[in-house]
Every structure is written in structure tokens, then in C-alpha cells.
Design a protein around this nucleic acid. Structure first.
Lengths: 202, 202
DNA sequence: CCAATTACATATCGATCGTTCGATACTAAA
DNA sequence: TTTAGTATCGAACGATCGATATGTAATTGG
């Protein structure tokens, strides 16, 4: 047993890498098998079919992110502090699930009805968490917007796009970049009530 | 000639629809040919290969968007007004190129070196236009940020995400949704200098 | 009107795809 | 030691893929 990961777990690791790099349709079962010196049929033994691999990735990786974010959304904090923490955590956590998230939002198209349902549920869960936190923010008078949902979409767009373009190359440190993105979202959300901000989020 | 569009032009129309719906890898030349009752070989006669179809779409559709945006970015206006106009136009124009833009940002992965270069150039052009407008905004003291580029990315993320989720179904009119998105971007960009905003952009 | 170019079609190629089958090796309980 | 389940494999299936070779009809410029 000279491999750190074995069987099922390793398939997922390799598949995450390949799916995120070449897309779902762009990656064949053979690609995955070859990249880890495993037989094709063995992957089918584990996951049933190709989509099974994708769904396993989705469930496996999204669960952790969603649980973490939900925990924050239920914290007993000042609405603004909770919101800041949520955004910051979402960005930072997403950093470690970068590849997986790229898969979430890249391959929604070519799934079966069942797969699409699972994928939609994930996105709905994440959106709802943000909506809840935003709603509290709104009711506490920190912001004033016509549609909480639109605001949540704007936030997710900014975060997910950040995952696309960020390549630890530029002049700023990862931390500074995060701070800039968080700040953009913060001011965008608070809008004309920006006086609510006493101090920058650290 | 019972068809409104003929030949090359019609291939592009059909390909845009299919690529945006099922992805580049998820759409076969046969799909395109069948959807318009044309022979496979004829598409090859027009575009050389499958990627040729994609590149034709890219060049054809991005050119108009880029030209339009660049025109605005070079207008002799107050920096803030120019910025507002740019965002508003970008969102509205993107609305009509929705499918095409989905293709731009969905299929960057599976292109040849040449195709990737073209695609990158398009994205660089769009980014640069926004950077230029932002820079003027910054120099005029309307905003104060560490990185113009990050700001531009944030804007593009919000806009492109909007194209993903918007489905003329919700309670708000398309116009109102646009206004909300523009407002989010505006406040996000202006940050702690929001007093620069006198009146909402219509 | 005729030659040349363009617009299209049929038929087919070899490669690759997702998937399945049938067989072995290993492992742990009985 | 038998047995049952789990992990793994090689070989092959039919379908579909991108691409091409070889044509014929239509259009057009001189």
C-alpha cells in the first residue's frame, strides 16, 4: 500500500483536478483512470457512472463549505459583524475549495435531472445562507435595498469571479487582495448607509 | 431561399445557441448541422474545424461589445458620469449578447493555443476598458483603492454573474434589477467616498 | 455562354467515448 | 478451509466524435 490515498478517495482527488482543469465533458473516465493507474472498470465499480463521480465530488466538497457558512450565519453576533465574518470566511474557505467550486459553477449544464437537482440544491443552500444574513442586516437598518436576493447574487458573483481570476502573482499579498474584495462587497451592500461602518474589517 | 439567414451566418446563430446551452465540448458538429439541416462537411468548409466555429463566434460578437464599450470609455465626460454610463451600457449590452458571453466565460478551458490567445485578448480588452475608466475615476478623487485591476475584476464578476442568474421571472422589472446591480457596483467602487454621488444614475 | 469559384451533400475514416462483462486477487468472517 | 464480499483488472461493445475525401449543384465574373 504505497499510496497515501487509496481507492475511492483517490479517484475523487484526481477527478477534482481534472474536472476543474478540463471540464466535465472534457475529461474522460479514461483520463481519470490513467492519471492514477487504475482501471476504468474500477471507477465504475465505485461510482456507477461518470456522473456519479461528479455528484460524489459535489456532495463531498459542498457539504463542508455549506456547514461552515451556515454555522456562521447562525452565530449570535451583531448583524454587521456576522455579515463581515461570513464574507471573509466564504472567500477564504473558497480558496481551499477552489477547484471544487470551479466545478460547481462550470458544469451545471450537462447533468441528468437528478444531478441537476443536487447541484441546484447546493447553490440554493449557499444563496439562502447569504440571504438570511443579509435580511438581518437589512432589518437592523444597516442597509436598504429592494431585493435581498439580488444583493446575495451580486455577492456570490464577486466571490466566484475572484476564484476565477486570482493567481497569487500580482503585487499585493493574498491577504490584501481578500481585503479589497471584502471591502468592495461591503460598500456595495451597505450602499448609501455606509456610515454604519465604524472600522474596516480586519 | 426560404430561410432568412443563409449559410455561414446561420451556422453562427445555431452554434451560439447550442454552445451556450450545452457547452463547447457538449455540442458536436453533428448537433449544429442537424439543428439547421445542413451537412457536416459544409460547416467544415466554412470554418475549417470545430474550434473555428467558436472563434468566429468570439470575434464576431465580442468585437461589437468591445467597440461599444471603448467608445464610451473615450467619451469626454465627467469621470463619474462616464463610469456610470459604462457600467449601465455594459450590463444592458450584455443582455443582448447573453448567450455569447456565456460562451466566452464558459469554454476558455478547451481551446487550442491560438484560440486561447484570442479569448484572452478579448477578456484583456474588456478588462482594460474598465481599468481606464476606473483610473480616471481614481485620479479625479472619486474613489480610493489599492488596485484598479482588482476593482475591475470585481465589476466584471458582478456583471457576468448577473448574466448567469437573471431570468426575467422575479417580482422586479428588468430595469429595476439593472438599477440594483448598477447601484451595488457603484457603491462598491466608490467605497468610503460615496459622498461623490449626487444623484442615482437613471 | 463558359469557366471558375462557391455552396452544399454522401459516405466513410480512425479515434475516442461511456459503459459492460467476465474474470481474478485479496481480505475477513465462519 | 471454505465462503462471501470487496477491490481490481483486461478486453471488448456499440455509439459518437472530429475530420476528410470525393463528389455534384448553384452562382457568378468575364
Amino acid at each position: 500500500m504505497h499510496d497515501l490515498l487509496k481507492g475511492k478517495e483517490k479517484v475523487l482527488q484526481v477527478a477534482i483536478k481534472l474536472f476543474s482543469a478540463k471540464g466535465f465533458k472534457g475529461t474522460s473516465i479514461r483520463d481519470i483512470a490513467q492519471a492514477m493507474n487504475m482501471s476504468i472498470s474500477n471507477i465504475y465499480h465505485y461510482f456507477g457512472n461518470k456522473e456519479g463521480v461528479l455528484l460524489a465530488i459535489l456532495e463531498h466538497s459542498s457539504r463542508r463549505l455549506i456547514d461552515e457558512l451556515r454555522k456562521i450565519s447562525e452565530m449570535d453576533l451583531d448583524p454587521l459583524d456576522r455579515f463581515k465574518l461570513l464574507i471573509k470566511t466564504h472567500i477564504e474557505l473558497s480558496g481551499s475549495y477552489k477547484k471544487e467550486i470551479k466545478i460547481f459553477f462550470l458544469d451545471e449544464e450537462h447533468l441528468s435531472a437528478e444531478g441537476e437537482e443536487i447541484n441546484n440544491q447546493i447553490q440554493r443552500d449557499i444563496l439562502e445562507i447569504h440571504c438570511n444574513v443579509l435580511r438581518a442586516l437589512n432589518e437592523a437598518g444597516y442597509m436598504d435595498c429592494k431585493s435581498i436576493t439580488i444583493m446575495a447574487f451580486n455577492i456570490l458573483g464577486t466571490i466566484n469571479w475572484y476564484l476565477r481570476w486570482y493567481r497569487s502573482k500580482g503585487p499585493l499579498s493574498a491577504e490584501d487582495v481578500t481585503k479589497e474584495v471584502v471591502s468592495f462587497i461591503l460598500y456595495g451592500v451597505l450602499g448609501n448607509k455606509k456610515e454604519s461602518i465604524i472600522s474596516e474589517p480586519r
